[in-house]
């Protein structure tokens, strides 16, 4: 039932779209019907899969690097006071720069290949992960810290046993945001300059009025993003195994 309901909603929307195209007679190169898109999806499955794999690789690599960098930066900020003083304001201010505006520069510097897209994803992911984890690290319950102090805890043990685990739920929140925005980074990178990937494919098809291919690529991208989000959700739920969900996800 939990899966069925949203699927039924989706089917209803698709039926509406199909009816609209039939009723209005919109030319296929402006708005293709869902059936056209499905046909294209099947016919060009190989092409879409090849480009999809490229994009997926960029997203996963960006997610991995961005998470590692973000966690390291947050840990550094939490562990060293001078780093906080010198770096934190700059880090916050850097978010005023729209990352998308940097995409052409990244392509210029790193080339048309994978590197510029991964860099783009990393840039987008880095800040939410850093901010979330750092926020978690700095908000350890003071009562826990006092208990640790009375117990004559060692500073490193306080970090490892108290601050880090207490910050994990916040980090997990950041990771979910990262998983949701990582595909944006990769696709923007591909739009600006690429020879492979779903973003490139969409731009290319759009220029040739192959709108059904655009939709097919879009569909694949959405499926990839959803799968990624689910995977991250599953993995992170294991990291914070002690946290109970208090809202049922659907229904």
């Amino acid at each position: 039932m939990r899966v069925l309901r949203p699927l039924l909603t989706l089917a209803g929307l698709l039926a509406l779209w199909q009816t609209l195209v039939w009723a209005t007679g919109v030319p296929r190169y402006i708005l293709p019907a869902p059936l056209d898109v499905a046909r294209r999806l099947l016919r060009d499955a190989d092409l879409l899969a090849a480009h999809g794999l490229v994009t997926l690789g960029e997203i996963l690599l960006g997610l991995l690097l961005g998470t590692l960098l973000g966690v390291a930066a947050a840990a550094g900020l939490a562990a060293f006071r001078p780093l906080r003083r010198w770096l934190e304001p700059v880090l916050v201010a850097s978010q005023a720069i729209p990352v998308f505006a940097l995409a052409p520069l990244l392509v210029l510097w790193l080339g048309y290949g994978m590197a510029s897209k991964v860099a783009m994803a990393v840039l987008i992911i880095f800040f939410p992960v850093t901010a979330a984890f750092f926020e978690g690290l700095r908000r350890t319950d003071p009562a826990w810290l006092e208990l640790a102090r009375v117990m004559n805890a060692r500073p490193l043990a306080v970090l490892r046993e108290l601050r880090v685990p207490a910050a994990l739920p916040a980090l997990v929140g950041g990771l979910r945001v990262a998983a949701a925005v990582a595909p944006i980074g990769a696709v923007i990178g591909e739009w600006v300059g690429a020879s492979r990937g779903l973003g490139f494919l969409m731009l290319h098809a759009n220029a040739r009025l192959q709108v059904d291919l655009v939709f097919a690529a879009l569909f694949l991208l959405a499926v990839l993003a959803l799968a990624l989000y689910r995977a991250v959700d599953r993995i992170t739920a294991r990291i914070v195994y002690w946290q109970k969900e208090t809202l049922t996800p659907t229904g």
Binding site: W144, E146, L147, E161, P165, L168, W242, Q243
Partner: peptide, 11 residues
């Protein structure tokens, strides 16, 4: 020290 809250670590 024993406080009003149990201060157990949930993990």
């Amino acid at each position: 020290l024993m406080a009003q809250q149990d201060l157990l670590l949930p993990w």
